[in-house]
Design a binder for these strands. Structure first.
Lengths: 113, 113
DNA sequence: TCCCCACATCGATGAGCGTCGAAGTCAGCT
DNA sequence: AGCTGACTTCGACGCTCATCGATGTGGGGA
């Protein structure tokens, strides 16, 4: 059930065809990346010094309602690209670099061990 | 196509936030990858010895109608992941490795300069 | 020339998704 | 306890998309 496990078991595209289960899992993550707002959110979190971003910082970067941003954050979290932690009144989001790395490897990165 | 240019100009996610135009372009390609059938098609083409796959070979690998496969091939072609060439009665599809490489770099590949 | 085959396009349909306002939750402050 | 601020969840609406059957196209072969 865990998505990251499926990513770890999926070979690079150029090595051998994906089976249906692998394709379904990998596609879920790519689908999450297939939205401009989510991509920008992810890049904001990923490029942040310290690695943490408060939701209010993200909301301020878009001309979208706060529930919409929250929805996108939820999608990114569900596929294992982000994690969240509540401290006091604020919720901080943080990148999961392993997931990003697995995706890169599936696309055919030169296997950075 | 100008899509590949956008990919080339887009920094790795972890380096700096994407602007709206970059995010829109990159998202188009990821959205194309966000479907299990298209991912499997891409892996079939990418892992093929010789690099060429006839449409009939792809259609045979799925329990989907031929128009549906043709639709997915068109999507992959429009975002610059595949090219096609007609020879005699058959149409052969081929991977565009540059596009895949740019995506991998945006996800944070170890900067293959 | 006529037919057949490989593939693309068209039009329709049902499911999914992005977006919003409204309402709910949760924590700190007075 | 009550209030306020930061997010999340809910319900709804409009649009996009995956899929299909039917139809169009283009190239060989008989």
């Amino acid at each position: 059930m865990e998505l990251l496990q499926i990513l770890e078991c999926s070979p690079p595209l150029a090595r051998e065809p994906l089976d249906a289960e692998q394709a379904a899992g990998v596609a879920r993550v790519f689908k999450a990346l297939g939205d401009p707002v989510r991509l920008r959110i992810l890049s904001i979190v990923a490029s942040r010094e310290g690695g943490e971003v408060c939701v209010c910082d993200i909301t301020g970067a878009f001309e979208l309602s706060q529930p919409t941003i929250s929805h996108h954050l939820k999608v990114l979290k569900e596929v294992g690209l982000l994690t969240s932690e509540r401290r006091a009144s604020w919720v901080y989001y943080r990148l999961v670099p392993e997931t990003l790395g697995e995706l890169s490897a599936i696309l055919g990165a030169p296997a950075a061990v």
